[in-house]
């Protein structure tokens, strides 16, 4: 992941994440449809059951990767050259915060 996913690596990760998410969402919809979410506890049990939580966590991480590559491309294309670096830094910080929040949420779910 050198250079914060630029060039070929970004191209590759964008496709890997797209394929994964393309498979994940129908699978998640089908899986969650098998459960009832009458209470928060029931929802937690459904999400944390078996390997589904790992598959979901990976999907969330890949959404971040996909968002970084896609948003980075948009910012490079549309922002004036002088403020591209600022834009990319803000985007990177924003995604880092989302990532930290995600990790906190995951740990909370596992501990409870």
């Amino acid at each position: 992941m050198s250079g914060l996913l630029t060039g070929l690596k970004a191209h590759l990760w964008q496709r890997i994440s797209a394929i994964y998410l393309l498979l994940y969402f129908p699978l998640a919809a089908w899986y969650l449809n098998q459960h009832s979410f009458a209470t928060l506890q029931a929802f937690k049990q459904a999400v944390l059951a078996g390997e589904f939580w790992m598959i979901t966590l990976l999907a969330l991480l890949l959404i971040l990767v996909h968002a970084w590559v896609g948003m980075r491309d948009i910012l490079i294309d549309y922002l004036p050259r002088k403020i591209v670096l600022v834009g990319l830094s803000v985007l990177g910080l924003g995604l880092m915060l989302v990532l930290l929040n995600l990790l906190y949420l995951t740990l909370s779910l596992i501990q409870n």
């Binding site: 250079g3 630029t6 060039g7 070929l8 970004a10 191209h11 491309d73 294309d77």
Partner: peptide, 11 residues
């Protein structure tokens, strides 16, 4: 050619 600008600006 492996560079975010040289080739991968192609959309």
């Amino acid at each position: 050619l492996d560079d975010p600008y040289k080739t991968f600006r192609c959309r």
